[in-house]
């Protein structure tokens, strides 16, 4: 395995360094949001797989679940970009509190439509 020995660290090192940089440089609050985003993504993928692999029988339920995932992902991603300290220059007029208020309002409207679909 002599040829592989040098390549392994070479291929691994970008990913590991990326993970390391992420865990060290990202504020905990953004990690908190990122975890939620990962959860939304996994949940959406699982529902979509169920729809295409098994059945879409309660199609309104699938629509409600999947669209709530997608919509929540969009809202959360925009919240993350607005509260990210590195983006402070781009969102000078938007304080983090304002961003969270927008997020809460958007989420409630989204959930209203989702439950409407679910009915």
């Amino acid at each position: 395995m002599p040829p592989k020995a040098p390549t392994r660290p070479a291929t691994r090192s970008p990913i590991t360094s990326l993970l390391k940089a992420y865990s060290e440089q990202t504020p905990d609050r953004l990690k908190f949001i990122d975890a939620f985003l990962v959860f939304l993504m996994l949940s959406g993928v699982a529902q979509f797989l169920y729809c295409i692999l098994v059945t879409n029988y309660p199609f309104n339920a699938f629509l409600a679940g999947f669209s709530s995932n997608v919509g929540q992902f969009v809202l959360t991603a925009s919240l993350r970009s607005q509260v990210n300290p590195q983006n402070r220059t781009e969102f000078k007029d938007v304080s983090p509190e304002r961003a969270f208020a927008d997020f809460a309002l958007g989420s409630i409207v989204l959930h209203f439509f989702v439950f409407n679909f679910l009915g």
Binding site: F32, A35, F39
Partner: peptide
């Protein structure tokens, strides 16, 4: 189970992030 599994992932990730 598959659809509920992300909740476990979420709980795991959040438990590792110490958010005050």
């Amino acid at each position: 189970g598959v659809v509920l599994a992300p909740w476990a992932v979420l709980a795991l990730l959040w438990s590792q992030i110490s958010t005050p």
